[in-house]
Every structure is written in C-alpha cells, then in structure tokens.
C-alpha cells in the first residue's frame, strides 16, 4: 500500500531536474533540522527516563503523587473530550451542511483559542472565579469554590481544546456535501437516523482523529492549568504540572519518567493520524471509483 501511493506520487510529480547534489543537500538539511528540533528531544526523553534503569522508572510512576496526577489528567480528559466532541459535531453540522451569513466569521471565532495565550485563559478564569472576582464571591455564598480545584482545571481545558474536533470535521463534511443526507430524508429517514446512518459513517475517521488530538491536547494542557490549579501536590497537579514540579525539584529522572508517558501519548496520536489519513484517502479512492462506474452525480440537475 505504501508502494502504490509512492509510485502514484512519483508519477504525478516528476523530479524537475533537481541535480542529485541539490536533492541530497536538501534532504540532509531537512532531516538535520527535524533531527535537532524533534527527533533528538524525543530520544532524550526516553533515554533520561530510563537512565537509572527500569526499576527506578516504574518506581517514579508508581509514586503516590504521580499516580494522583495521572488520575486527575485522565478524569479531566474523560470530561473534556466528550463535551468538546458534542460541540465539534454540532458546530460542524451547522457550518458544513447549511449556508448562512457570517459563516467564515464563525469559523474564525472557533479558531480563536489557538491564538489566545493559555496564560490569558488562566487569568480570565481567576478574574471570574477568584475570591475577589466577578462570580467568585457570589458562588462562595453557596459554598462553591472553583479556583484551585479540579473543576477549574476542567473548565480552562474545555476552553483550550474547544476547536480540535470541529476543525477536523468541518472541511471533511463540507467536501462530502449534502446529497446523501437529502436522499435519506427523501426516503423517509428521520433527522437522527440520517445523521447516525449516513453522516457519521462518512466522517468517522476524521472524527476519530479529532477526538484523539483533542485528548492529547487536553492531557497536555499546561499554561492555563498552571495558573488556575494552585499546584497542590497530590490534589490539583495534572501530569504536565507534576513534570514541572519534579523537574524544578531536580528529580530529573522522575520528571522524564512521567514526561515519557505523555511522549508515548503523543506518538500514539501521530500514529493514529497517519492511519486515519490513509483510511480517508482509501475511502475517497473507493468513492471516486464507485462514482466512475455509476452515472456522475454532477450530471443530474440539483433540486
């Protein structure tokens, strides 16, 4: 499978006379750049984590504060990812399947968390829910304190990871159009049936990658969580915060041991992306092959 894509790509884009010297130099520069910035850091994480042997590695992870951090990170992701998945699917349905004014503005707004510093997100949370904040004192009357609790971590993580599922789904659903859904509805399917049996299977791989990426970002969120969590060991430290605490305490091996778990998560995310991209490309090839045999959908006049 790898060979066929490479062949078709090589066939589509001939090497336009770049001399072997140029070619080799550019490949060496590209690999050197990626090596210095990506591959060496990755290798270093695992080598440092295992520097004192496998026992020390597992002891560092089994230590109570580390386990508490892992648990908190997992719980946070378990809340944040489903909520932002529902948001992403709803936003993608509204944006990709309908035409309305202000659509591109809405897409820009959805992207905003990308451009806002996580530290600013944390600051806004403190301004809203802090002891002297706008809502904090009112909630305190009912005995609710959000700042420096796991709830604060969940809320700022919701903000930071909001766009990921929507961003994966919108282009995919736009490319697929609405013809299949219209046919299903004409044949008497309900809106939910149409979504569940037509739309969802069509976008399942993109949705899966969006969820995986959202999960990776939720587990790795640092700046905003750093501000709102209070960094109480064993209570409000997530895995990235625990890495920071260990590192600043000069417990380098332990810091890299916990970091290596997050690095593994990143590698799994990248692997999932490659698989999903391959699946989407395959589905599109199959779809275009099927469309080639059947009468072209473009030929029919649209209703």
């Amino acid at each position: 499978m790898a060979d066929t894509t490479n062949l078709s790509r090589a066939g589509a884009v001939p090497a336009h006379g770049d001399s072997p010297l140029v070619r080799r130099t550019l490949i060496a520069v590209a690999l050197g750049f990626l090596g210095l910035f990506l591959i060496l850091p990755l290798v270093l994480i695992f080598s440092q984590a295992l520097a004192e042997g496998v026992r020390v590695y597992f002891d560092a992870i089994r230590e109570p504060d580390s386990l508490a951090a892992i648990r908190l990170t997992l719980v946070t992701a378990a809340i944040v990812v489903p909520v932002n998945t529902v948001f992403g699917v709803a936003a993608a349905w509204a944006i990709a399947k309908f035409e309305f004014k202000g659509k591109s503005f809405l897409i820009t707004i959805i992207d905003m968390p990308f451009a806002i510093s996580p530290v600013v997100v944390g600051l806004i949370f403190v301004l809203m829910f802090g002891a002297t904040g706008w809502l904090g004192p009112h909630l305190a009357e009912y005995g609710i304190h959000l700042l420096f609790t796991p709830a604060a971590i969940v809320i700022v993580t919701l903000f930071g990871t909001m766009p990921f599922v929507a961003r994966e789904l919108i282009p995919l659903m736009q490319a697929q159009g609405t013809q299949e859904e219209q046919s299903a509805l004409t044949l008497g399917a309900s809106g939910w049936q149409t979504f569940y049996h037509i739309t969802l299977p069509n976008v399942k791989w993109g949705l899966l990658y969006g969820v995986i990426l959202c999960n990776a970002r939720a587990m790795g969120e640092f700046g905003s969580v750093y501000v709102v969590s209070g960094r109480i060991r064993g209570e409000t430290n997530t895995m990235p915060l625990h890495v920071e605490v260990l590192y600043n305490d000069y417990m380098i091996t332990a810091a890299f041991a916990v970091a290596s778990l997050l690095a593994l998560l990143a590698l799994v995310t990248l692997a999932a992306k490659s698989i999903v991209e391959w699946k989407i490309a395959r589905d599109m090839r199959l779809a275009s092959a099927a469309a080639g045999e059947a009468p072209a959908p473009d030929g029919e006049s649209a209703p």
Binding site: L34, I39, I45, A271
Partner: peptide, 17 residues
C-alpha cells in the same frame, strides 16, 4: 508523520527535553 509532533507533545515535556 513526525512533523506533527509539536501539536501532540505537551509543551512542558518539550520544554524540559
């Protein structure tokens, strides 16, 4: 595939590395 690593790797991890 590795080009996307900075999207997936938590910033604290890349920081200490």
């Amino acid at each position: 595939a590795i080009v996307d690593l900075p999207f997936a790797l938590p910033t604290a991890v890349s920081g200490i590395a």
